[in-house]
Design a protein around this nucleic acid. Structure first.
Length: 888
DNA sequence: CGCAGAAAAGTTTTT
DNA sequence: CTTTTCTGCG
């Protein structure tokens, strides 16, 4: 489809290309005279990327090389040189955040008067815009509803049940994911591979997909995937429509090109292909500029194709390729570590980042070992506090985790420390139950055919409309081919329903009729409030005594408040369906906790990277499902993580991690071995020993993390050995923070509340208050005693350490090692369970001194069979199994 | 019909 | 360990 283009045209054949070429030639020299303000301060490559406006351009922008700056300046340049009006530029990003940022920055560059840029947005928001204009071409009305995942799954579940399939055996969620994959690949029901179609529900996959799409049309709805799929179909089947867009878009820009999936690629290629319309307008080449970094492609799992960026030059012959390799963000050590790591990947276009930020004072990337994830959280917490004391802002620090379950431990810890934190990318504002309920009301008012929304709220708050009533309503609606709400209006006229539910339903119908009538006359914010009040929804939460109810009411208020930014209720609904992220308030100083994925594009002074262990990072599932390319994606994720740091990057790994409530032993990540020695410092001991900051380790070799003998394993680090030496049985003379640990004993009651608040309101920064009802000993560093016990008892610590499935970190005595033998005692879910010793007389009697691996030394207060009640010196009174203590 | 308690299942990353 | 779903009772 690019045949009309002149393959022999020089890459920079257009007049502006000449300037770019000169700029390139003048590399390092003074900027050209009369250069516009916005161009000054760009380095030669950046400038070329900005000024090469004509023809296809691929900008390979490494981490921290000013990618966003190039994109925004390029748009500003196009506008300033009057090459195009704002409405003639198509600029696509992946996230709303990126789109917003670009808008503001362009505003700053151009002087703020560019209100326009109607075509700057995410793939999805632009997709909606296109689809609204031509909805009828795919059987929708232009006021179609956008379904989110939740609606989607409920709908699929109905379809599965309608097919008389077991929705347990074939979960709707699985099918939603499957279908999502198809849509990411741009596959319509007739195009999906036979194997995929068979894989679900005994070969009914294709049928289900088709039924789902039909149902969406009858609901006048589109899901996220459709926002791309429908426009593609429209472009393919209606050349006149496509030609219209070709005429419109003179310049196309794409951010994060490495993350585009097949559907997005098809969409883009249709818009960016050369055409008669373009030739007529005097364009001999398409002015498309894609910016990306193949080393930061981390969304392969959701269909992104790195190939798209790798084959750009094939797709757009004669493309100019510009590499941005000068990094303005990180120190030489951070870049060096990242470079050494990413060099292990084979599939790359290859870039070498360099920086002028060199200084002997710069800290190397540190690698820290910890015993278990609790210690990791504790030590990182302390390090954060210490940096804070040195004057580093919490806002400048971030903890980037591989998987979201890792966040909890940090949250717990920070709550007890009273350290401000914010979780980014948690449950999104618009995905909260109360918000979705409220929106369902609004949707019903605006779109009476929105059955999914109606179903959601017909009995919320409780109106006595149970299964029986709903089923009757459904059957009636299906029989008559009516939307549910219309069916309800009919049904309340008859006597099929019992008086009580009939009255309730009639009330609902009457309410919706009234609200719909007010839609055109009343201010939408007032109407919104009115709906929530009159429906009893507000009241429902006011009556709710649970901990999260006040927060929910607060969220509802915020929802009404945010409606003010939009002109109408439908306009508001359109907006919220797409904008998934709620704004964070950056006013409070708080540490950010987020996944590595959501950290892309961000930067922090100090970055903590916990959990570098095999199985977690690289994640087992990526390895299992993705093989080598899966591993490479994980490595890119690690690369992204490291390159977020400006001055300090601190990597952690631990030997024991609790996954699904089960303690598992872990071995250090292979990525640690790939970090070049000269940029990395291995910390002597964990921060909780107060040992960080001191020198590195001597025998720094390839097998330093994962040798299979004790001395060469990770436990062979000097810090580790010192910890062992200093931490004799019961003799742990801990570092700082102990007073805090034990001071918390007995604090209770506030725990449940603060936890509930933490879950309900994750995305809002708050200061942590309250302790843990479980008592301070839970917080006590388990390190010293554990380690020494470990080292002293097990003949083959490493193999024991590798064992899986224990419910507690390996410990001596009744720990993992002995439970591996038949009949040994085991600890299950924190409750001590004896297997075979129940009837035997106890080895202990009241008054005996005993030692417990976690609680330390204590005195036996009571003996009941094999269960002891022990007054521990530090942990207080606890009931334990005698298998877990031994005479001291 | 609604609620509360108990059992069961599920757990990477998300526009 | 948490969240969701089912069951049984009021």
């Amino acid at each position: 489809m690019d045949e009309t283009r002149d393959p022999n045209a020089a890459p920079a054949g257009r007049p502006k290309g000449g300037i770019a070429a000169r700029a390139l030639a003048a590399r390092g020299g003074p900027v050209a005279p009369n250069a516009a303000d916005y161009l000054s301060g760009l380095n030669p490559e950046q400038r070329a990327a900005v000024e090469t406006t004509e023809g296809p351009v691929l900008v390979l922008a490494g981490a921290g090389t000013g990618k966003t700056r190039v994109l925004t300046t390029r748009i500003a340049h196009i506008l300033a040189t009057r090459r195009a009006f704002p409405s003639q530029i198509l600029a696509v990003t992946f996230t709303n955040k990126a789109a917003r940022e670009m808008k503001t920055r362009i505003g700053h560059l151009v002087g703020g008067e560019v209100e326009g840029m109607p075509w700057l947005g995410t793939f999805h928001s632009i997709g909606v815009k296109i689809l609204r204009r031509h909805a009828e071409l795919v059987g929708l009305k232009s006021n179609f509803t956008i379904l989110d995942t939740d609606d989607q799954i409920r709908l699929i579940k109905q379809l599965i049940q309608a097919e008389n399939l077991d929705d347990k055996r074939w979960p709707a969620r699985t099918f939603a994911n499957l279908m999502d994959g198809w849509k990411n690949k741009g596959l319509t029901p007739d195009k999906i591979p036979e194997g995929d179609a068979r894989a679900f529900a005994n070969g009914k996959g294709r049928e289900l997909y088709r039924a789902y799409q039909d149902r969406l049309v009858s609901l006048n709805a589109a899901d996220f995937g459709d926002l791309l799929m429908h426009p593609i179909a429209i472009f393919q089947n209606h050349p006149d429509v496509l030609a219209d867009y070709h005429k419109r878009f003179r310049y196309i820009l794409v951010d994060e090109y490495q993350d585009t999936n097949v559907a997005q690629y098809l969409w883009l290629r249709l818009l960016a292909q050369h055409s008669a319309v373009r030739a007529e307008a005097g364009q001999d080449k398409v002015n498309v500029c894609c910016v990306g970094d193949d080393d930061q492609s981390i969304y392969g799992w959701r269909g992104a194709e790195v190939d798209n960026i790798l084959r750009f030059e094939r797709d757009f012959p004669g493309a100019t390729v510009i590499r941005l390799e000068r990094n303005y963000r990180s120190t030489e050590h951070i870049l060096g570590a990242a470079a050494g790591l990413i060099a292990n990947n084979e599939d790359r276009l290859g870039k070498t980042l360099f920086t002028d930020l060199r200084d002997p004072e710069h800290e190397k990337v540190t690698v820290n070992a910890g015993w278990d994830s609790e210690e990791e959280a504790r030590a990182i917490g302390e390090e954060i506090e210490q940096l804070q004391r040195k004057g580093v802002k919490l806002n400048d620090m971030a903890i980037l985790v591989r998987a979201s379950f890792q966040m909890r431990e940090f949250e717990d810890r920070f709550v007890t420390l009273g350290l401000n934190y914010r979780v980014i990318g948690g449950p999104r504002f618009y995905e909260r139950q109360e918000i979705r309920d409220a929106l369902a009301y609004f949707r019903c008012v605006c779109q009476p055919a929105d059955d999914l929304a109606f179903e959601r709220i017909v009995n919320t708050p409780k109106r006595g409309l149970g299964d029986a009533a709903i089923r009757l309503l459904h059957d009636y609606a299906r029989a008559k081919g009516l939307p549910l709400i219309a069916a309800a209006a009919d049904i309340v006229q008859g006597d099929e329903l019992k008086p009580r539910p009939r009255a309730a339903l009639a009330d609902v119908v009457r309410n919706f009729e009234r609200w719909s009538g007010l839609l055109s006359t009343m201010r939408h914010t007032d109407l919104g409030e009115m709906i929530l009040d009159e429906s009893g929804y507000t009241e429902m939460w006011q009556a709710d005594r649970s901990a999260e109810a006040p927060g929910r009411l607060e969220n509802l208020k915020e929802l009404i408040r945010s409606m003010d930014d939009y002109e109408s209720l439908p306009g508001f609904l359109e907006h919220i369906a797409l904008v998934m992220d709620a704004e964070q308030n950056a006013e409070t100083d708080a540490v950010s906790i987020m996944t590595l994925h959501s950290a892309k594009g961000l930067e922090f002074e100090t970055v903590f990277l916990p959990g570098w262990e095999e199985g977690l990072f690289p994640h087992q599932r990526s390895l299992d499902e993705g093989g080598r390319s899966g591993l490479e994606e994980e490595r890119r994720l690690a690369y992204v993580g490291i390159t977020r740091g400006k001055r300090r990057v601190k990597i952690w790994f631990v030997s024991n991690r609790r996954i699904h409530g089960m303690w598992q032993s872990t071995i250090p990540s292979r990525f640690l071995d790939e970090l070049p020695e000269e940029h990395v410092e291995v910390m002597e001991a964990s921060a909780s020993y107060g040992g960080y900051g001191a020198g590195g380790m001597g025998g720094y070799g390839a097998s330093r993390w994962d040798g299979n003998a004790f001395s060469t394993s990770s436990y062979g680090t000097p810090g580790w050995r010192r910890a062992q030496a200093s931490g004799g049985v019961g003799g742990y003379a801990g570092g700082r923070g102990r007073a805090i640990e034990y001071g918390e004993s007995g604090v209770s009651g506030s725990d449940a509340r603060s936890r509930a608040a933490a879950t309900a309101d994750k995305y809002i920064a708050r200061d942590g208050a309250g302790g843990r009802s479980s008592g301070g000993f839970e917080e006590a560093p388990a390190n010293g005693p554990d380690r020494s016990g470990f080292a002293g008892r097990l003949t083959d610590p490493f193999s024991a350490n590798r064992s899986r499935g224990a419910n507690q970190p390996p410990r001596k005595g009744g720990g993992l090692y002995s439970s591996a033998r038949a009949g040994g005692p085991r600890e299950i879910e924190g409750t001590l369970v004896a297997k075979s010793v129940a009837d035997e007389p106890s080895r202990f009697s009241v008054g005996d001194r005993v030692f417990h691996i976690k609680f330390g030394g204590g005195t036996v207060a009571l003996v009941e069979g094999n269960k002891l009640t022990v007054d521990f010196d530090r942990a207080g009174q606890k009931r334990v199994l005698e298998g877990f203590v031994e005479p001291a």
